[in-house]
Amino acid sequence: MIKVKINGQEQNWDGDPDLPLLWFIRDEIGLTGTKFGCGQALCGSCTVLVDKQAARACVTSVSDVKDREVITIEGLHPTGDHPVQKAWRQLNVPQCGFCQTGQIMQAAALLIENPRPSRDQIRQSLSGNICRCGCYQRIENAVHLASTGV
């Protein structure tokens, strides 16, 4: 039995320990905010926080997060008012929106590690997250805004 804490709630898994965390989150728990993109950790759509660090859920197995804390977009803030989420709305960041949960989770991880990143640090941290619509400038601006506490 594998025990994982997801969004503050303990979850038990007695299935395949190699099941990707993404499918455990989406199919077993029913949290669909974490998206499937490439399945190879190249696009960042499936980004979640594992012990406050960004992780790609498509290549992280359930056994990799045994006894660890996982936060999905649904658990980032109970009312969707994490500073990054607020900045996203304020600056109207999304276009199609598909990559946004991964972008937000990557940005949240950055701000945990570095609450006041430079623009270069923001770009570097988010460089592994692909936006199909090319909203990179709006994404960078939102992360910068979130880092200022506005």
Rank of each mutant, 00 (worst) to 15 (best):
G39F: 12
V65P: 10
V84H: 00
G15F: 08
E69K: 15
G44I: 11
E113S: 11
Q90T: 13
R119K: 09
Q103R: 05
F36E: 11
I104W: 00
N12K: 14
V93T: 04
Q100S: 03
T101A: 02
A108L: 00
D51E: 07
K66S: 05
N12C: 08
W23E: 02
P20T: 03
N12A: 10
A54P: 12
I112K: 14
N114S: 14
C46N: 06
S118Q: 09
V50P: 11
D51H: 07
D18K: 14
A87G: 03
L21A: 03
V65E: 05
L49R: 11
N114T: 15
R26M: 05
V48A: 09
C43L: 11
Q95L: 15
T34D: 02
G44E: 02
L111R: 15
G15E: 08
C46I: 05
M105V: 10
L21E: 01
T34A: 01
P20V: 07
E69S: 15
D64N: 13
C46G: 08
E74K: 00
S63P: 03
N92F: 04
Q85V: 01
I73S: 08
Q95P: 14
A87M: 02
D51P: 12
K66I: 01
H82E: 02
A55Y: 02
A87D: 01
R68H: 09
E74H: 01
P115G: 09
P78V: 06
F98D: 06
G39H: 06
S118G: 12
G97V: 01
Q103D: 00
L91C: 05
T34Q: 10
Q90K: 15
A54T: 13
G37L: 07
T101H: 02
N114E: 12
H77G: 14
L91E: 00
G75V: 05
A55S: 10
E28W: 04
D51M: 08
I29P: 03
D81M: 12
Q95M: 13
V62H: 10
P115T: 06
V48E: 03
C43Q: 06
T101K: 01
S63C: 02
G37Q: 05
A55M: 06
A108G: 04
P115H: 11
G37T: 02
I73C: 05
F36K: 13
S45L: 12
N12E: 09
T47A: 06
Q106N: 13
A87K: 03
R89Q: 07
M105A: 08
P115S: 12
Q53M: 13
F36Q: 10
L21H: 04
V84M: 00
P78A: 11
L91D: 03
Q85N: 00
D18Q: 13
I25S: 01
D51Y: 09
